[in-house]
Design a protein around this nucleic acid. Structure first.
Lengths: 155, 155
DNA sequence: TATTGTTATACTCTATAACTATA
DNA sequence: TATAGTTATAGAGTATAACAATA
């Protein structure tokens, strides 16, 4: 049995490749995958505290400081007073953050199309459905995974 | 479009998870993924130099020193004089190295079965065939991928 | 002059702890 | 006493450079 015939090998190989390409394609927008993750969460529910964001992304709150710093430095989010807890910051998506998120999503769509090119529409749907079942079975929490944790594109 | 519906997201999420579990399951054998990779290559063609092994695994020769050190320390390989080049070492798989490799392959088989449990035999074959096509299309070199580069199981 | 294996160094990342201000 | 955010520190991991032996 060759390495390349194992599903686990193919999955991890392809998974790393895709995560790597995503980080690389995202770089021109000044975004890292983890930062994209934060923008995504904020788009669904704005004004989260850093601790909440950290929990949702599966990172430590210490690391979230730097992520929010970077996003704020680019004007993609702003820290505001939290209405219920004066210890916490309410992190808000700005207009340019919204624009950046849309651009990042376009990058993800292009990558998706590029990676899945060899499959026709029915095959793509079938693949995604099967991957979904595997993810569910593995008990992986939605929206949180190690590739989003850090990772700069290597030059 | 939710994150979880993207193929690229599912692929990277699952890929990282599988690589992580493999490293974890391999640890009791005293092997890291990269070391498993070296044993696999030696099983196919014994007596390679460290430089050749480094090329095949996609790591730097400096890093191969430590990998071979670890394998030699456990008695899984031995460094011998290279018949053609006195600068180089010929790395040979030992009997216990062969045993360890077989055990590691069993670990990989168990992981494969565990991960793919939700799919019936036909679906598994279909998934693997599609992944194969995606890997080929992405131009990923066989037998070399980042997850095999290092990675200790996190406690 | 280039290459193999090796070692040492520097750099990056990550994880932990510690501090403050609130609760 | 516990928690949110922050900062500093230490530890691990990785990459780069430099060296001796040989080609």
């Amino acid at each position: 049995m060759e390495l390349d015939d194992r599903g686990v090998y193919l999955l991890s190989h392809l998974g790393y490749h895709v995560a790597d390409r995503f980080a690389h394609d995202l770089a021109p927008l000044g975004l890292q995958p983890a930062q994209f993750g934060v923008l995504t969460h904020l788009a669904r529910s704005d004004g989260r505290s850093q601790q909440e964001l950290a929990d949702q992304l599966g990172v430590h709150r210490n690391a979230m400081v730097g992520i929010v710093d970077a996003l704020e430095g680019r004007g993609y989010v702003r820290r505001a007073r939290h209405p219920l807890d004066r210890r916490a910051h309410a992190v808000h998506l700005t207009e340019s953050g919204r624009t950046a998120l849309d651009a990042a999503r376009a990058v993800a769509d292009e990558l998706e199309a590029s990676v899945l090119t060899p499959l026709d529409a029915a095959e793509q749907a079938s693949l995604i459905a099967m991957l979904h079942r595997l993810v569910d079975h593995a008990g992986l929490p939605p929206g949180v995974h190690p590739a989003l944790r850090t990772r700069l594109p290597r030059v």
